[in-house]
Design a protein around this nucleic acid. Structure first.
Lengths: 123, 123
DNA sequence: CCGGATCCGATTCGATACTG
DNA sequence: CAGTATCGAATCGGATCCGG
């Protein structure tokens, strides 16, 4: 059995679909917010500030489809649904947390670069 | 002097703009393709398979504005423009390469999860 | 309370044509 | 060669209404 070697830089490489899923700000925020916990939909909605119910539901469905998130629906009224990372999803936590750390740690520098760029271009 | 602490999970935190820039498939592919080299526009275009000239130019401009990429334009005819990562951009290489590695390494598992999900949902 | 369904505007993306 | 301009197509994202 041969194991194909994927390369996301190649135009039609299917692995690009999984890069597209994880290299996404909503995915990053949701995976970070989930961490090691089981989190209810509404709680997730408050933890990921400003996300709409639609985007949260859509992204969670995509992540569930890709085996990154597990959905636990209780048969109750009112409904109660919890989400958590699968084993596969947990392997994503550190890489995405690294992106989050980068974004926060270097924001000041990025912001200064933007101001400088905009000042130069307007002159 | 106080150093503000950013948190991308907060709705109006400005650091979210920098997360949005880096948690993006085109950004990831371009930063990976640049690596430690100076690369011409056209070469970059072939290395990042399937990217259109418009998207490549737009993304490079955004990355230049954020101080992640440096642009070197030679005053020649025909034109010659090279791009390379800045020091800031180089700090992004490993985190984004980690995403690329994840996407390639786990694609098979993701693909199986998708097939299973789709089979269950259609029944 | 947790979504699904729908509509709609905004943004992204891609193909084509063009220019210095 | 390295873009820009323009134009649709497609995707993303938010608001609203609805249903269990």
């Amino acid at each position: 059995m041969t194991t194909p070697v994927w390369n996301v830089l190649l135009e039609d490489c299917p692995s690009r679909t999984s890069l597209a899923r994880i290299a996404n700000k909503w995915t990053a925020m949701i995976v970070i917010a989930l961490g090691d916990d089981r989190v209810r939909f509404g709680e997730l909605r408050t933890q990921v500030g400003g996300i709409s119910a639609k985007v949260l539901a859509d992204t969670l469905r995509d992540l569930e489809r890709d085996g990154i998130v597990a959905r636990h629906a209780y048969d109750q009224m009112p409904p109660k649904v919890e989400y958590e990372l699968t084993d596969l999803g947990r392997t994503l936590h550190d890489p995405l947390q690294a992106l989050r750390t980068w974004a926060e740690a270097h924001y000041a520098q990025v912001s200064r670069a933007r101001e400088m760029y905009d000042r130069e271009k307007s002159s």
